[in-house]
Design a binder for these strands. Sequence first.
DNA 1: GCGACAG
DNA 2: ATCTTGTCGC
Length: 255
Amino acid sequence: MPPGGPDRSRRAPSGRLPRGRRLVGTMTTVRIPAGWPATEEQARAVQDELRGRVILDEPGPPVGEGRVTGVDVAYDDERDVVVAAAVVLDAATLDVVAESTAVGRVPFPYVPGLLAFREVPAVLAALDGLPCAPGLVVCDGYGLAHPRRFGLASHLGVLTGLPTIGVAKNPFTFAYEEPGTARGSSAPLLAGEEEVGRALRTRTGVKPVFVSVGHRVGADAACAHTLHLARAFRLPETTRRADALCRRALKETAA
DNA sequence: GCGACAG
DNA sequence: ATCTTGTCGC
């Protein structure tokens, strides 16, 4: 190895060179945890056991103060690769404060109701790689709104102890009445008679997002945070940032 | 039994 | 989630 570090004169074929901003922050390699569920039955048993540890009676952090972190995951199932990203924003300005990514092998197939077993190890690693405390964690998916009331946001909350909420793009199997057309309008997300979340309109006249409580945050606060984070677009800035980062990291991992 | 089903 | 071109609009 010549002085000055790796040889950068060798170039990938033109056009395959990553353009744009370089990845910043840490890039962790994830191992599938020992004892990670291998079957759907085992995974459901884990959910049934951990569900009792969810905390639902805390109001959660104040809106617009401290830090808020978005987490998301991208896949290349062909290559058995998963990349997670965690992006920390200043809650007042929504400026990016820190970023972290993690790469690993896909630990579980996609099964509705068992999404967390696919995403959690990589997300935990991405959170671990952050140089600062995450504050409130906003997940791409559900928390309480789940067949066994223990979705991704609940799972991540219990494992980390952090306050979490889930903001999903689809109603999953749940029912809801169309909320009012104005930004800020909401309607209950229902599992039969039980309210498990809210359909929340973040942009006037645009399809709502589906908010549910994860861990240590109440439903009203979860919606207030979501509205605060989704000023210019339908989705919260946290998930937009995390989504963009893990996709970019996935592409640059393949190359 | 059949279909639906966060990402 | 991912596969994918152009297209309409600010």
